[in-house]
Every structure is written in C-alpha cells, then in structure tokens.
C-alpha cells in the first residue's frame, strides 16, 4: 500500500512538472517548484517506509527547510531585483537609488 502511495506521489510530481514546463507566467513556475519541493518531502517520507527505514523523516524535514528558504529567495529576487535588500523596511532617509538594487 505504501509503495502505491509512493508511485502516486511520483505521478503527482510529473503533473507539477507539466505546469513548470508550460508556464505560462513566472509565478506559475515558482509555484510549481515550491509544490514540487513539497511533494519531494512527502515522497522521501514514504520512501523511508517503503524501504523499511523510517529514520529518513529527518532528511524530509531538512528538505522542507531548504525548499522554504529557496522560495523566499526567489520571491525576494522578484520584488527587489536584488538579494541585498533586507526583508524588513528601513526608515527612508536616502534617495531610493542608493538602496542597493532598486535602481536596476
């Protein structure tokens, strides 16, 4: 039964991949990458049970962390066109062109 669930998750990964390939907008692709990462986490969890070693759940949790951080990085790139802008808002004391990548 667990094997069937693992194969079903791979098929779901394939369906998400179709969305990443077809697009059409950039946000479709970002969402596809993020949900594909989530399905990877699920799949590794299932795979541990298929192979009889459930201690792989730790790895699945670490994958979830990496997935979250990389999605935040991509979305921050879209918002600011740069990684060098802090996520919190600073009080505006300078012209916006001096704040890193805003002028690009």
């Amino acid at each position: 039964m667990t094997e069937i669930a693992a194969v079903a998750i791979i098929i779901a990964i394939g369906l998400t991949l179709v969305r990443a390939l077809l697009g059409p907008t950039l946000y479709d692709r970002v969402l596809a990458v993020n949900s594909l990462g989530t399905k990877t986490v699920l799949f590794i969890g299932f795979l541990g049970f298929v192979l009889g070693r459930p201690d792989w759940l730790d790895i699945a949790v670490l994958y979830a962390l990496i997935n979250f951080v990389s999605t935040i990085a991509i979305l921050k790139f879209f918002r600011y066109r740069s990684f060098q802008v802090p996520l919190h808002r600073r009080p505006v004391t300078k012209t916006p062109t001096e704040q890193g990548g805003d002028s690009v």
């Binding site: 990443a20 697009g23 990458v33 990877t40 799949f43 795979l47 192979l51 792989w56 790895i59 994958y63």
Partner: peptide
C-alpha cells in the same frame, strides 16, 4: 529559451535527482 524558466527547471532537476539519490541510499 527563457532563462528564468531554465533556472527554475534546473532547481527542479536538482530536487528530483536528490530524491533519486535518496532512493539509491546515498543520503
């Protein structure tokens, strides 16, 4: 040809190949 889509797909490639490495027991 869209470079952004290629970057996203290379991330997907890494994720799937990492999953495959787990399946091969190379954690």
């Amino acid at each position: 040809r869209s470079l952004f889509a290629i970057v996203m797909l290379s991330g997907i490639y890494s994720l799937i190949s990492a999953t495959w490495f787990v399946a091969l027991d190379a954690v």
